[in-house]
């Protein structure tokens, strides 16, 4: 019953895309659209096959994913301990919350100019953009997560004999985890957008770069191919990795309505 439901909802999700592809396959040749303005579906498919065969697509995807991975891991390593340290002290948390809220909503792309000044063009600047997109949101969410753990729960742990380390690993970290996971999901969404923009400006490999260079040669089929890959990769990342992680923590523990 459950797997059937999931199959159906997957089908419903894919159906509009199938319709879009059919319209594309029919309408673009029908109106004989100039390929310099918009490619035919068949041309994009050929470009896809070609770029897989010669290895360029894999190279671009690999470069982009590596930057996201490195930037995200670095951000988490700093953000989670910092967020917990801040969340434990109400005074520190009240003082720093506005700052972290501000930087959380500041678009990742806004960091590109200063990132290229600091790190030059390439891996460093782009990873920095990713780092910022994830870091501020995850720190803010971790801080929020810790400060929403009811004092009674912390008191309960203390009166059951939890010391500082146990308080951290058994109470504060798991208590903040649903917020942390939500932060990672939101942060990665921003990071992914920032990544593509940064790659258009500050590098010579990656999906964003692939799009931007294709434009110089009027290769609309490569541009559209890149756009599809960017979208599909994000959907896969979000649906197969982040959303299940969020569900596993938040729904299982029933911490959605916790305030």
């Amino acid at each position: 019953m459950r797997s059937r439901q999931r199959f159906l909802s997957g089908l419903l999700f894919l159906l509009p895309f199938a319709v879009l592809l059919v319209l594309w396959a029919v309408l673009v040749p029908w109106f004989d659209v100039n390929p310099r303005l918009f490619p035919r579906l068949s041309a994009v498919a050929e470009a896809g096959v070609e770029s897989v065969r010669d290895g360029t697509l894999v190279g671009h995807i690999g470069a982009s994913l590596l930057r996201v991975l490195v930037g995200t891991v670095l951000a988490l390593v700093v953000a989670v301990p910092l967020g917990i340290a801040m969340g434990v002290s109400p005074v520190v948390s009240i003082f720093l919350t506005p700052l972290f809220r501000f930087f959380s909503v500041l678009a990742g792309i806004a960091w590109i100019p200063i990132a290229t000044l600091w790190f030059g063009y390439g891996f460093g600047a782009i990873t920095f953009v990713i780092f910022n997109a994830v870091f501020f949101i995850v720190t803010y969410n971790t801080l929020l997560g810790v400060s929403t753990i009811p004092p009674a729960v912390r008191n309960a742990a203390a009166s059951l004999g939890a010391g500082r380390w146990a308080m951290l690993t058994e109470v504060l970290l798991p208590g903040a985890l649903p917020n942390i996971v939500t932060g990672i999901r939101t942060g990665l969404g921003f990071a992914w957008r920032g990544l593509i923009a940064a790659e258009m400006i500050a590098t010579n490999v990656g999906l964003g770069y692939m799009l931007f260079v294709a434009r110089d040669f009027y290769r609309t089929e490569v541009i559209v191919l890149g756009m599809i890959v960017i979208g599909v990769l994000w959907l896969l990342l979000d649906r197969l990795l982040l959303a299940p992680l969020e569900r596993a923590t938040i729904e299982r523990w029933g911490m959605v309505q916790r305030a």
Partner: peptide, 8 residues
């Protein structure tokens, strides 16, 4: 408020 650990 019971104060159980929801994650355990």
């Amino acid at each position: 408020s019971f104060a159980l650990f929801p994650w355990k």
